[in-house]
Design a protein around this nucleic acid. Structure first.
Lengths: 145, 145
DNA sequence: TATATTACTTGACAAAAGCAAATATAAACA
DNA sequence: TGTTTATATTTGCTTTTGTCAAGTAATATA
């Protein structure tokens, strides 16, 4: 297959896939949290404790913007922020108990929307899909899930 | 593979892939057009002639918002809009000559950014990737590219 | 012919995101 | 040590992006 064809196929996939992910994300947007907020909650939950800078290594947002979102999530009692004793420039961010619960809800919403798009496939095709994605991950990022 | 694992794998893929597509899209954002604008230009180029409603079947934007973007692209001499004689509610949208050129540029930027992420793979892995995406398309959308 | 529907537009507004300057701390280094 | 440089975060200000609701015009439908 020549490079042009490969690139074309990938771009076609991207357009379609981005579109359907966009639709999935709209289900998340019906929650009380913006997409970026729920991404942040997801990351904090995963890391257990983190900092704004570390979050931003993944999300690459404007720093000021991120700072404000974190502030908002703290005001909503989803996160706590505590100055690190070892490096007073940094603030340790954690989920509150409420934050953990809310994050789980968002996680379920997200899983359910995936479930709904694979529900029309039979189990062996569902498994095949997961294997395909795994392989793409290995090729692109050198890691599977 | 059980459903939970499948969903988890898909979600992991999604997070990673959305992130890297996001980075690609940032290269498009360094152009004079917003992502949505370039998507519209892409669609109009593909269809040769279309209408706002048809564009929105794909992009699902707010109608007012779309209307304004089209207006802006017309002001920039990228698009033309002409009332359809057969149904005067509709307006045929086309690319101007300039629009075609600009769209081609955006298209190349987009292709180049794909090229850069597959460049570290050897040709057979690149081909494999395209085949994987094709298969995902078949499974999810019933169509390959 | 009255009513509903479709295609598109406009005004007002809100949310999301970005830029630049500022503060505080820490690290580098001469 | 003191001085410069870099890092982490915040704030004020602005722009961009997106939403909502109401409005116009044309067409379809009962």
């Amino acid at each position: 297959m020549d490079e042009m064809e490969i690139i074309h196929k990938i771009r076609t996939f991207n357009r379609n896939y981005v579109r359907s992910i966009g639709l999935l994300e709209k289900t998340l947007l019906n929650t009380d949290y913006s997409l970026t907020e729920s991404q942040i909650l997801f990351i904090v939950n995963e890391k257990k404790r983190t900092t704004a800078t570390e979050i931003n290594k993944l999300l690459k947002l404007d720093e000021g913007y991120l700072s404000r979102i974190i502030k908002k999530l703290i005001a909503r009692r989803m996160l706590t922020k505590e100055q690190s004793p070892s490096d007073k420039r940094c603030f340790e961010i954690k989920l509150t108990e409420k934050g953990v619960k809310e994050q789980q809800k968002l996680d379920e919403i997200s899983s359910n929307s995936i479930r709904s798009i694979i529900s029309h496939l039979n189990p062996s095709h569902q498994t095949e899909l997961a294997i395909l994605f795994d392989r793409v991950m290995v090729l692109l990022y050198g890691t599977d899930s």
